[in-house]
Simulated scan of single mutants.
Amino acid sequence: MSVPFDRKVRVGVTEKNQHAYWDMVNAGWHDAAGALGLDLRIEAPPSEDVAAQVELMRRQLDDGVDALAFVATRADAFDEIVAEADRRGVPVVAFDLDAPTSGRLTFVGMPAIRDVANRLGDVLAERLPAGSTVIAQTGSDHAPGAAAKLAGFLESMQRHGHRVVVGESDGEDVARSLQVARRLLEENPEAAGMYGVYGYHPIVQARAAELAGRPDLTIVGYDLLPETVDLVESGAVACSVWIQEYYFGYHTAVLVNALARTGSREALRAFRMDPDDLAGNAVYPPVAFHTKDTIAGFRSFAAAKSLQARTATTVL
């Protein structure tokens, strides 16, 4: 049943974990909610926990939300809860990480993650001497986004003839990540570059390079947390990919509002999506590769949205 316009749409949002990255996503959620009049309930387990995510979504359904939005930490884990929401007439949208065959109505997030990682690998490769050693870090052995970012990067490094040393997963624990980075640098003093799959990795790796007295290291990574912006501007991080996570929240809010207000089939058609082929429905904000030469443009955007004040500090 469509939500009448005389009350707010109640949206249950379930994210992957609690980290500064989500502050930037949630800035988009809150800005759109203010414009559209949404009642948001944003929740996440402290760390990666698919079962906890599903339980949060079930509680949101039981509490009477009008729409659900979730991050598919594992693509095959949400089919049952999405089906339950459908039986209750509650539209469901995935964002940041997709579960295309779950029955979700559409997705907002990063396009072709593996291809983006491959391109970032090429950016690093062109800055390294031939046959260099590169250190790579990950924060999850399970999340599809992390796996795709690592796989695409490794493909690029192999193509360019660079050797990659991959550290064990740090479990998205920043302190542990710094320990891993420092150990890998000690064990591989010949390393010329560093790469990480998550937003805290450029910050961690720049600190590890500083502690090791290695200002020559070339570091590339993802996201533009406030500390990363400073590091890119200083040249300590050579390049970081802005995946426009602010718009993951903003665009998903716009979509769930339309789905709840006008009905799923009508809303999908209005956005030129297919109500009979849900797996192919998606919105992909374009990614941008920021370096010292281009970071001023992002600073202007972040200032206009007050992102720095709305994003938690990454504590090392």
Score class of each variant (00 low, 15 high):
V3T: 12
R10K: 15
R10M: 06
R10V: 04
V11N: 02
T14Y: 03
E15W: 01
E15N: 13
Q18T: 13
W22R: 02
A27Y: 04
A32I: 07
L40E: 02
I42R: 11
Q53W: 02
V54A: 09
E55M: 11
L56Y: 08
L56V: 10
R59L: 11
Q60Y: 03
Q60N: 10
G64L: 07
V65L: 08
D66C: 06
A69I: 04
A69G: 14
A69R: 00
A72M: 05
F78N: 02
D79K: 13
E80N: 13
I81N: 07
V82G: 01
R88N: 08
P100E: 09
G103W: 01
T106P: 05
P111Y: 12
P111T: 10
R114V: 11
R119T: 15
L120I: 00
G121R: 02
G121S: 05
V123I: 14
E126W: 11
G131H: 00
S132K: 03
S132G: 07
T133N: 13
D141V: 10
H142L: 13
P144C: 08
A146H: 15
A147N: 14
L150Q: 07
L150N: 00
A151Q: 15
G152R: 04
L154F: 03
S156H: 01
G161M: 07
H162R: 09
V165N: 10
V166A: 15
V166R: 10
D170R: 03
G171A: 12
Q179W: 01
V180D: 01
A181S: 11
P189R: 09
P189V: 03
E190H: 00
M194D: 01
G199Y: 05
E210V: 07
L211K: 11
P215I: 03
T218P: 06
D223A: 06
L225S: 00
T228F: 05
V229G: 01
D230E: 14
E233I: 02
S234L: 05
C239Q: 03
Q244W: 06
Q244L: 10
G249E: 00
T252A: 08
T252H: 08
L255S: 04
L255D: 06
N257L: 04
R261S: 09
R265S: 14
R265V: 13
A267Y: 03
P275T: 05
V283L: 15
P285W: 05
V287C: 07
T294E: 11
S300K: 13
K305M: 14
L307D: 01
Q308S: 13
Q308A: 14
